[in-house]
Write a protein that binds this DNA or RNA. Structure first.
Lengths: 338, 338
DNA sequence: AACGCAACTGAAATCGGTTCCAAACATCGG
DNA sequence: CCGATGTTTGGAACCGATTTCAGTTGCGTT
């Protein structure tokens, strides 16, 4: 049992051991060019010997930088968000940042509240699929650095997916299979993703002279999907598109439970291409988004913002989407062709 | 466009407005009993008027408390961990704490490394299903407050599930269905959960005079499961138990892909009872653990530790598990009864 | 009215870094 | 060899809170 001293080792301890002033230690560690090679060497050796790790709180106090970024998501159990988290954490760590994850439970009020109380503790926020109204969040966008993900804000840097095109791909796939009556199970009204997906569907469906009905799911969750399933079946739609895969899985489950064959009687398409989409029976056709790149780029944008760097291409990026066809979509049933 | 001052409002500003000293503001806000009702009233009004939020970094510097706890998980995309995160965040927030989520990517070295570098930034850690060897983490257990989840450490407070009993329930369920040759697809060797589950199976299977083969999955993930599926089929086992549901889903997928009927030809049981387990076809029989209570209690234990409170019952809790029978388990195939 | 005690308040020290400023030192050209 | 210049370095102020310590106030006694 090593009885190592649990006392905290401060910059002064390092300074004493290295035989320099605390100021020099700070410089040697932060900006090696400021200090003579010999001194730098001694400082580094001393720091290593003592196992010195700077106190982030003290550093934050003077610099005003916490080196922490807040990632705000509606529901971390949705794999789309946990995957984005991993990408964010990876990139953040490369830049020396930690990630404070905030789950708002899909509740706009909670979202606003948490952002407000945490605003002073982070250098900036990554707002992922915000559910709160733009106006609610506006005050913070002014006071704190913010990059939005999956949401096209007014003058905020943002990373989005090409939802309109993804929706078009999904619709055309279904239309090509002979479907003429489609149903869309929508997500949160505040979600710009949702609006864009709906718009993409409407355009493609209208161009083909087909029909589109839309419902709003109670919540963009599995249970929201099961609840919406019967509504979809009550229409005579032969294909359903869900706002996201989690809803789609809920639909699938309820369809199967009611003995409706997928895709024999109804085809089903989701969004996001979460890993579980490939595991269901039948596996789910889905519109894939670039989760990794979304997460990494969002961090890049935020760090640029914090460091006052200007992006050459501007801080708005729209990433392409692509349809992944699996077993949940098939030809429209012959019996319902009228 | 409201042109509100974006300048930070400090305790001095509040003090000036309230006509008292900063010290009194601090007292009025922190400990209302210390200060006269009239003063308290004025301070609160001033703070509210200015929208004062104390600077956490400054507070952390004097108090030595960051009011942040670190939750370390192997893989946040595994729903068991994201669910635990939600429970942890909920309870932490009630106590005025934020949660720094750390995903180690199932890598023991990363785990040790991240814990080391973040140790100074949090008041304590919740180590969830740690993959690193006990000795590796020991130094931190001394220096930082730590509560382990899903891992029985030596003298560390811990929250675990009754894995042995859960495994027993699973085994007896299968034995009752007539299965005589079982296979266990194991998880990480460092996981005490894994060891206990294996032990529980061994005991129950031995008592019934049946057979148990075990394999170690490449990783406790979906892909690990698909990879292990063929190994399982190569034995003549009629039932497989997986270390967790994610592995089980991988097995299920591969079984289905190879045309093996579940449960007609092979029965399948997972652990954790993640929401997706109910969504597959067939839905997965699984051993449920008390995710919510695990997360909440872990926070309680950690806060007790930080505040120097002593738990009456000691800081070790084992929560019961229970088998949830779904469609993936059925009678052993008659043809293979020998 | 004077006294003692308790409750309240403010000044100042402190936490552990960073950074400005000025002093010390080294380097170079003339 | 001297002064001018540029590079390193240490001292001290500062960030924004908390907390100790001592001083002030208010109140109840006698």
């Amino acid at each position: 049992m090593t009885d190592e001293p649990v006392v905290t080792v401060t910059i002064k301890d390092v300074a004493r051991l290295a035989g320099v002033s605390p100021a020099s230690v700070s410089r040697a560690l932060a900006d090696p060019g400021q200090v003579r090679p010999g001194t730098r060497e001694r400082v580094h050796r001393a720091a290593a010997a003592l196992g010195y790790h700077p106190n982030q709180a003290a550093r934050a106090l003077t610099t005003g930088r916490t080196r922490t970024i807040g990632l705000v998501v509606p529901d971390i159990t949705n794999p789309i968000f946990s995957t984005i988290f991993q990408a964010v954490q990876g990139r953040a760590r490369e830049g020396g940042y930690s990630v404070l994850l905030v789950d708002t439970g899909e509740d706009p009020a909670t979202e606003v509240d948490l952002v407000r109380t945490l605003a002073r503790q982070v250098d900036g926020f990554l707002l992922c699929s915000p559910r709160a109204a733009q106006e609610e969040l506006d005050p913070f966008l002014r006071a704190t650095a913010v990059v939005t993900i999956n949401h096209r804000g007014r003058r905020v840097p943002c990373i989005t997916s090409d939802n309109t095109d993804g929706a078009r791909q999904a619709a055309e796939h279904l239309l090509a299979l002979g479907h003429r009556r489609l149903a869309y199970v929508a997500g949160p009204a505040a979600s710009s993703d949702n609006r864009e997906r709906l718009r993409g569907l409407r355009t493609a469906v209208a161009a083909a002279g087909a029909e589109l009905t839309d419902f709003t799911a109670v919540s963009p969750t599995y249970d929201g999907g099961t609840a919406a399933a019967d509504l979809v079946l009550a229409t005579s739609a032969t294909a359903a598109i869900a706002f996201n895969d989690v809803i789609a899985l809920g639909l699938l489950n309820r369809f199967t439970a009611r003995g409706i064959g997928v895709p024999q009687q109804i085809s089903l398409v989701g969004f996001d291409d979460i890993p579980f989409a490939a595991m269901t029976n039948p596996p789910l056709t889905s519109v894939a988004v670039a989760k990794q790149q979304i997460g990494r780029t969002a961090v890049d944008f935020l760090l640029d913002l914090l460091d006052g760097r200007q992006r050459p291409g501007g801080s708005r990026l729209m990433l392409p989407t692509h349809l992944i066809v699996r077993g949940s979509t098939g030809p429209a049933p012959a019996t319902s062709a009228d």
